[in-house]
């Protein structure tokens, strides 16, 4: 047995529509250690949610299709499981928290029923017992037990996200996939919910894949970080490596576009341009058209991951040049 709970290797996911083929995820490889949290960072459309759904083997098909690769979950490949094994795995070994709590809950079932459903599916217990367990879960996420018989429309966004968390954690999964769990919430609520998730996964020795575009959240929660751009990982390493020894121009761009509260009045530096149309990715490095360091070579070949030391890897051809450093070459 390895010390990894999840190992994704060379994953390729495509969406095939009438208008063309979208390469949502391309040659993706990463792993998550037991009890570790990996932050998956990138813009909307970079393929983060697709990655998470692939781990549950829940890519909507058609039009989505997992073309190749392997996803080893605690030693067994998710992509070769049959329906029965998948149903046993989903919710029990791997659970997911969705981005928008307003739409992730079934409007015609009480929240108690929705939490209990998860427990009933994986444990052989009676309806009544599972309802009791559901109430315990509610208490755990900070909602009064008496509200188990209420419907989603009677809750605020933050409370609903707590319910979604309760559903995900009901069966004590080994791995939690959290897809932008705080994006849809009010700023004041975001910190509370994040704190709650952090507390629960530490208490329960869980691993987590945290999808976000918010580097602040990453700094607070994650052990490791993977930065995604246009379906590929461009930089991966420990949080310290990514934050202190930023290597990829795109990661640098992400940091520069963050406001710094201590130095008010400082100008934000946005990344110029837009993410390329995933149906029509440019040849060579996808980031090259927006990259301030790009050379002709970048537009020709796709850069592979290059080892920088420790567990730090970057996909950037600039490092073939001697003495290349972000921000300091020219």
């Amino acid at each position: 047995m390895t010390d990894k709970i999840l190992e994704v290797k060379d994953l390729v996911v495509q969406y095939v529509t009438d208008d063309g083929c979208v390469e949502a995820v391309n040659d993706l490889s990463f792993s998550i250690g037991k009890k570790k949290t990996l932050g998956l960072v990138g813009e909307t459309g970079a393929g983060k949610t697709t990655t998470a759904l692939s781990i549950l083997n829940l890519i909507p098909s058609p039009p989505g299709e997992i073309k190749s690769g392997s996803i080893m979950l605690d030693g067994s490949d998710v992509l070769t499981m049959d329906q029965e094994e998948l149903q046993k795995m989903r919710g029990n070994d791997v659970a997911m928290i969705f981005q928008d709590p307003m739409t992730a809950l079934n409007p015609v079932m009480t929240i108690g029923e929705q939490i209990a459903e998860s427990i009933e599916l994986h444990e052989k217990i009676s309806k009544k017992e599972s309802m009791e367990r559901a109430k315990e879960m509610l208490k755990l996420v900070g909602i009064a037990e008496s509200r188990a018989y209420d419907y989603p429309h009677q809750f605020s966004g933050g409370m609903r996200q707590r319910v979604v968390i309760a559903i995900a954690l009901a069966c004590n999964p080994k791995l939690l996939l959290a897809d932008e769990p705080t994006t849809a919430l009010d700023v004041t609520i975001q910190a509370q919910v994040l704190e709650l998730i952090k507390k629960l996964i530490t208490e329960r020795d869980m691993s987590m894949l945290l999808i976000t575009h918010d580097l602040g959240v990453v700094a607070e929660v994650c052990d490791d970080v993977a930065v995604m751009y246009a379906g590929r990982i461009v930089e991966i390493g420990t949080a310290a490596e990514i934050f202190n020894e930023t290597a990829h121009p795109y990661t640098e761009g992400l940091f520069n576009s963050l406001p710094n509260l201590k130095q008010r009045g400082e100008k934000l530096v946005p990344i110029t341009g837009m993410m390329p149309d995933p149906m029509d990715l440019p040849e060579g490095c996808s980031f090259a058209p927006r990259c301030p360091y790009a050379t002709e070579a970048c537009k020709k070949a796709n850069p592979g991951l290059r080892h920088l030391g420790g567990s730090h890897y970057v996909a950037c051809q600039a490092y073939e040049r001697e003495n290349f450093k972000l921000g300091g070459e020219q």
Binding site: L58, Q87, F98, A104, S118
Partner: peptide, 15 residues
Amino acid sequence: RQDYMTTARAKGASE
């Protein structure tokens, strides 16, 4: 196409 359908599948519910 609603999200809660994905939620249910992610819980491990059968189709």
